[in-house]
Design a binder for these strands. Sequence first.
DNA 1: CTGCATGGTTTACATCCGTAGACTTTCGGC
DNA 2: GCCGAAAGTCTACGGATGTAAACCATGCAG
Lengths: 122, 122
Amino acid sequence: MQISSAESMLMQALWDRHPQSADELIRTLGPAQGWHESTIKTLITRLLQKQAIVAEKDGRRSLYAPLLTRDEWIADQSESLLDRVFGGRVAPLVAHFAEHRKLSRKDLAELKQLIAEIDDAD
Amino acid sequence: MQISSAESMLMQALWDRHPQSADELIRTLGPAQGWHESTIKTLITRLLQKQAIVAEKDGRRSLYAPLLTRDEWIADQSESLLDRVFGGRVAPLVAHFAEHRKLSRKDLAELKQLIAEIDDAD
DNA sequence: CTGCATGGTTTACATCCGTAGACTTTCGGC
DNA sequence: GCCGAAAGTCTACGGATGTAAACCATGCAG
């Protein structure tokens, strides 16, 4: 089951903090995304159907929490880009960002660090 | 205007070789993607509408060529993932692939090379 | 007890997408 | 000049998505 782009905004909110009531989601996401109350209700319903979140009763209302983990989602999205766009190879992807000067000095440092670690682990 | 996933398959074919006639596209993509002739015709039409490709008359038929460049598309797709999933930062993205052992030895070598080059250019 | 607020469910609707059939136009061969 | 194949255009249709209104249930305040 696929999480749509609007739905993923709601997931992000829940990954950042959970559980949250519909009301909380509405109050934070509404303004942030320019969504009406109903829109958020719909997204909640769809995410429940997709079993990306669960509802836990808390008296009259429900508290929602993610079922799909952020990591699973990130992995999924990344895989998809990698396969669709870069033929499954990582280096071209990084090269792309490098060429387009999307690599900040900090990114570079982190990358070096990362590569060193991987080398060590090898 | 957004290029859909099926449409991007057709774009890939045109980026690899252009111009191509509808017939050629049908004969290569049809089997490869399991698409019927009509499907490919539709995709061509939609891509023309989206101005992602152009038609150049060649007698009775047309030859199609990309207008949107592969690089533009790649940049677009990558940006989108980066923003939607990684908050716009590259290192976490690469870290993700590293953690999930998606980095082949070859990727690693290429990455090191890449970083060295960037460092030099600095 | 009873109506209202609050939260949840149903319905709505335009657009995009994947997939494809039907119809139309036109050029080249007979 | 006419007909059929090839190319292109129009129509279709179900599912997903973005966006939201309408409606329903239910427990709390009065």
